[in-house]
């Protein structure tokens, strides 16, 4: 195990460093990227201001504030794409090189993604997160989120990350069919943002539709950890949603392995 970490750690470290390397854009990026959750926040406030009922889609106004910003924290760390790297490797032809190297291609990509995740955690996600807690305690008067919620959230977040990258690995296999993935990428992003709870909480959908969406892997990417953070699940229900995430991790892992095996076999045949 330790040896394995030694192999993949440099990928993580490199990615982290190269992210830092563009210093000039770094500060601006940090500032600009915070615009979007803020504008979302105002939109929701206007929406809550247009109704007399205190709660919409099962969330109170205050909960929605937390939801909006925790969506930002969560998606920042979870949505780390690797399919673009796969596409680049296919275009450059270096994907074949990865077949001879004594390591798992998917693992090296996931380590790389983990590097980006760590980077994003420090810049600037963790500060937003702390900001959310301060706002929650001081302005909304809801008190600090209990440690148990935070720990469950972190566990869930980790699985969300794995679900997303494993899914994106499967998605990246499209690169072996066509290297023009822009259109597919857009379709993927649109579906994920709609179905994962990023754009709107799943609870806003008509009940039957929402129920269905909760059983797709997408809600496990964002909606589940954020709802855990909000303390919307407890006991058996909490165990159930975490278990559902674990199932998706396994399912997507196996799917990725199968796809990869098929494709590399074909590559070897074509390569002679």
């Amino acid at each position: 195990m330790r040896k394995k970490i030694k192999i993949y750690l440099p990928f993580l470290e490199n990615e982290f460093k190269s992210n830092l390397a563009y210093k000039g854009s770094f500060y601006l990026f940090m500032l600009c990227y915070l615009f979007s959750p803020f504008i979302n926040y105002y939109l929701w406030m206007a929406i809550y201001g247009s109704t007399d009922s205190g709660s919409i889609g099962g969330l109170t106004r205050d909960e929605m504030v937390i939801y909006v910003f925790m969506i930002y924290v969560t998606t920042e760390m979870v949505f780390v794409g690797i399919s673009e790297y796969i596409r680049e490797h296919v275009v450059e032809g270096s994907v074949v090189m990865n077949l001879i190297k004594p390591m798992d291609y998917r693992m090296s990509l996931i380590s790389q993604a983990a590097g980006t995740m760590v980077y994003r955690f420090f810049a600037p996600t963790v500060f937003v997160w702390i900001g959310v807690e301060i706002y929650k305690a001081c302005v909304l008067g809801m008190g600090i989120t209990p440690l148990s919620n935070i720990l469950c959230y972190m566990l869930s977040l980790l699985m969300s990350f794995l679900i997303y990258v494993l899914f994106d690995f499967c998605f990246g296999m499209i690169a072996f069919i066509t290297t023009y993935m822009y259109g597919m990428q857009l379709i993927k992003d649109a579906l994920i943002s709609f179905l994962s709870g990023q754009l709107i909480p799943i609870s806003f959908f008509p009940e039957a539709v929402g129920r269905l969406f909760e059983f797709l892997p997408f809600s496990s990417m964002v909606y589940t950890p954020v709802m855990i953070y909000l303390g919307k699940y407890s006991g058996a229900e909490l165990a159930f949603v975490l278990g559902r995430q674990a199932v998706w991790v396994v399912l997507l892992y196996v799917t990725g392995s199968l796809l990869w095996r098929r494709i590399t076999r074909r590559l070897v045949v074509l390569g002679g």
Binding site: K17, L20, A21
Partner: peptide, 9 residues
Amino acid sequence: GLSGALKGL
């Protein structure tokens, strides 16, 4: 190094 990357920032 890694700490250097942070320092550079």
